[in-house]
Amino acid sequence: MKIVIDNKDGNVWDVSNVVKDIRYSTSRIGKASSLEFTLVDSGIYQDKKFNYQNGDIVQFTDGTNKVFMGYIFRFEMGLNGEAKVLAYDQLRYLNANHTYVLTNVTATQIIQRIAKDFGLKTGKLADTKYKIPNFLQDNQTLMDMICWALDTTLIKYSSNFVFYDDFGQLTLENITQMRYGFVIGEGSLMTDFTYSKSIDEDTYNHIVLYRDNEKSGKRETFKIEDSSRIKKWGKLQLYQSVDEDMTKAQINDLLTRLITAKNRETRKMKIEAIGDLRLRAGMYVNIQVARFGINKFFLVDECMHSISGAQHTMTLDLRMV
């Protein structure tokens, strides 16, 4: 493992030998990746030139893979001389609020526009293709705007994308291209797990879409439901608006897509495993637990790597899709 701090003034410090308690976290939706570590009072601290400040660049590699590149956002220290450092990748700058009024733009184009306006570096950005007719976002965070655009694309085109920072470059990738190459399960990395099925979160069997007709002054509603699931679970209703310019055929198609996506139990799994830094949030991973009949692909919602000395573990919050 290697961690370096770049002061942006020509000084680059390899602090790998004086670092302990590393935590590297990634999230699939709406959050920057973070790197936390403790600098111990020895070695490089004896060099009077050594310094670090908020905004300094931090790079984390494992010898083969480029894992994390970000910027120091917080550090704290005490009398024992040790300092705790927290760094975030570029996505942290998307917490800023702004206003955009755009028409006929794809989620990819929205990301490109925001990156240009806010001086962020981009890498590979997959073409999401679907053009959003009206992108009206007033005083919203940049991250919420991008997530809204990607959610809209998912509903319209059933195409799911993962937005993340790939070692200093904003990246957008189709989720089908992000598969972890190994099985996790009994006898393969896993040390513990919990598995749950729920209808308490994002499950709907009765969907109502509405739009306000300015000419008639009336509200039009469109419905779809699964009566068998209502009988089993009770009525779980989703109620939301649609664009005025959508045709009835488009609204009915949207109803079908929503009932297909939402009318099911949410299945989640939490895994404790031996760490592998190639695994991050947004990836598909094959989970196999033979005694419980589990052999399915799950989507990694959250991934936390913890490294202490020679011990490297990871905690995965997974969702079946």
Results as ranks from 00 to 15, higher is better:
36 E>P: 00
215 K>P: 08
321 V>L: 12
10 G>A: 09
203 T>A: 15
21 D>A: 12
255 L>Q: 01
189 L>P: 00
66 K>H: 08
259 I>C: 01
252 N>E: 15
230 I>R: 10
54 N>R: 14
100 Y>I: 03
293 G>Q: 10
302 E>L: 05
248 K>G: 10
253 D>Q: 14
257 R>T: 12
286 N>D: 12
219 R>M: 10
36 E>Y: 06
35 L>T: 05
86 L>A: 12
168 G>C: 02
271 I>A: 11
282 G>N: 12
175 I>N: 04
55 G>F: 07
265 E>F: 02
277 L>M: 13
284 Y>L: 10
242 V>T: 14
133 P>R: 14
145 M>N: 03
19 V>T: 08
284 Y>K: 13
181 G>R: 04
103 T>D: 15
91 L>Q: 15
242 V>K: 11
97 N>Y: 02
199 I>S: 07
130 Y>V: 03
26 T>Q: 04
80 N>G: 07
144 D>T: 13
136 L>W: 07
308 S>A: 06
134 N>K: 13
304 M>P: 00
61 T>V: 13
134 N>Q: 12
70 G>C: 11
283 M>E: 07
149 A>Q: 09
43 G>F: 14
114 I>R: 02
150 L>P: 05
86 L>R: 03
4 V>S: 15
265 E>C: 00
164 Y>V: 11
84 K>G: 06
56 D>F: 14
13 W>L: 08
74 R>Q: 15
156 K>T: 09
229 R>K: 15
267 R>G: 03
178 M>T: 02
259 I>N: 03
182 F>E: 15
124 K>Q: 10
43 G>M: 12
7 N>Q: 11
144 D>P: 01
112 Q>D: 05
274 I>G: 00
159 S>I: 01
57 I>A: 04
213 N>C: 00
66 K>T: 05
197 K>P: 00
234 G>T: 08
12 V>C: 04
